[in-house]
């Protein structure tokens, strides 16, 4: 998640133009990113962590497309989801999907028997090995960065 931009969010809190094109706003009771945005600006967003609303944003990008700031409600919802994940409070299915992704680099392996029955060629090789290598490097760098920030802060 990129950091949130309070200036853009402040405009959001007074705008709401995308509300009427947002499929979740229009079809799911109680879903309203404007409330989340107001709480973010007021610093009282704790109650939204793992609230069912923040997982109802469909990431359809309608709000982004219609927004004159090219910003979109979804940024606020993504921020809340990332924070929820940091606190390890995600829905069960999200956790399961993430574990599979980190372990295999994919969200499911090619169904070999069904493919054979259909006469499909063998699936191309997965890049799982290289993927795991770069994930390891990425995570090590992230950790050392975090350690450095901590000591700098002291």
């Amino acid at each position: 998640m990129e950091s949130l931009n309070p200036k853009l969010l402040e405009v959001c809190s007074r705008c709401g133009a995308c509300y009427h094109i947002c499929p979740a706003c229009l079809n799911l009771e109680g879903y309203d990113p404007r409330a989340v945005i107001k709480d973010i600006l007021a610093g009282t967003y704790e109650k939204w962590l793992n609230h069912k609303s923040i997982w109802q944003c469909l990431e359809c990008h309608h709000c982004l497309e219609i927004c004159f700031q090219h910003y979109g409600f979804e940024n606020a919802m993504t921020a809340m989801r990332t924070l929820t994940a940091k606190k390890r409070m995600t829905p069960v299915q999200v956790k399961r999907g993430w574990d599979m992704f980190i372990k295999t680099g994919r969200l499911g392996e090619p169904a070999a028997p069904a493919r054979k029955k259909l006469g499909l060629p063998e699936a191309a090789k997965s890049g799982a090995e290289d993927f795991k290598k770069i994930v390891k490097i990425y995570q090590e760098r992230k950790e050392s960065e975090a350690r450095r920030q901590k000591t700098d802060g002291k």
Partner: peptide, 14 residues
């Protein structure tokens, strides 16, 4: 050599 694209709504959120 491809892996998951990866799915934004899963991986980017985390």
């Amino acid at each position: 050599g491809f892996t998951c694209c990866p799915e934004k709504s899963l991986v980017n959120n985390i």
